[in-house]
Amino acid sequence: MTVLIGIALTLVLAGGVVVVFTDDPQRQAVTLSVYGLLMTVLFLLLAAPDVALSQVVVGTAIVPLMVMLTIRKMRGNR
């Protein structure tokens, strides 16, 4: 279990770095979504399924969707 948690933590760290270094905001919404999924796995491994459920919906669906819609609006008005 400790090994799995270690792997998940490393993936979360790597995922965070990828999100920060993604330049295009539209692509960033996608990497952010993947990052949210990695966080979900981590919460699940840490025996927090309630938090994992919140994280999977908010972090991988709602927030990236709001980012995508905002970007679409801004590009459309240019």
């Binding site: 399924p49 309630d50 459920l53 919140s54 919906v57 908010v58 669906a61 709602i62 969707l65």
Partner: peptide, 25 residues
Amino acid sequence: DLVAHGHVTPGGGFQGGIMLATGLH
């Protein structure tokens, strides 16, 4: 299911509600 069984299994009003809202989209 998450809303209805939130007191028995993992989940609850927040998780279920936000999933319903997202699912509709």
